[in-house]
């Protein structure tokens, strides 16, 4: 039973943590080396890691997607996709895909004269599943080891903590003010019933005593 409980807790932590890690913005300091556009066949369960099709093109399962290729300071490569999130999930309301593509092209630099940028993105890169993080913004930084304070994440996580606290307080209040009096009422009713029963039993016993 204890194992089951901890497995469940671990599973919930993993799910919530994974969801937040996927959805919240992150910053990578990279050097952009190229951009390209490629037809993508978006089908199967991994389609949930791509944007939903536009209105009016709900039947097409493949479309052109823009990609941004970059290299990290340690020499490892990373590829971002560049897609509008529109009004859908996650709520970044990104509509400037074309502008971002232009900025990315403008920021292309080579090894000899590197131009470091911070790419804000959400999502995961998976080579096996062909998943790409979605780039949200590009900002020049002075060097490969510039520090970026994740203010947005601090605000969002603080806000989530406050919401959790509020839900907990609301439930406590509901239990204290509504459930407990209800239970007490029922208990009182039981007591009254008990008393009546006892009286009845005494009465019956009384009959037999008299006899």
């Amino acid at each position: 039973m204890r194992y089951a409980k901890w497995t469940l807790i671990a599973l919930i932590v993993l799910l919530v943590g994974g969801f937040l890690h996927y959805t919240l913005p992150q910053h990578d300091i990279v050097r952009i080396v190229n951009t390209y556009e490629e037809r993508q066949d978006i089908s199967g369960w991994t389609s949930m890691f791509w944007q939903a099709p536009d209105n009016g093109s709900t039947t097409t399962q493949n479309r052109d997607v823009q990609f941004i290729q970059a290299v990290r300071p340690n020499g490892k490569s990373i590829v971002y996709r560049n897609e509008d999130t529109g009004w859908g999930w996650p709520p970044y309301f990104k509509f400037d895909t074309a502008n971002l593509y232009t900025e990315a092209n403008d920021a292309i630099s080579n090894k000899d004269t590197p131009e470091w940028v911070s790419v804000t993105h959400y999502g995961w890169r998976s080579q096996v599943l062909s998943l790409f993080p979605n780039a949200m913004g590009i900002k020049p930084v002075p060097g490969p080891d510039a520090t970026i304070i994740p203010w947005v994440n601090i605000v969002i996580l603080t806000f989530l903590a406050v919401v959790l606290l509020l839900i907990w307080r609301m439930l406590a209040q509901f239990r204290e003010r509504t459930i407990t009096p209800l239970v007490e009422d029922v208990e009182d009713a039981w007591d009254v019933m008990d008393e009546k029963k006892d009286n009845a039993v005494d009465k019956v016993k009384g009959w037999f005593k008299k006899r």
Partner: peptide
């Protein structure tokens, strides 16, 4: 919050 996010994502 929506207005701020919208502005930051698209116009900054």
């Amino acid at each position: 919050a929506f207005c701020v996010i919208f502005y930051v994502t698209n116009f900054m």
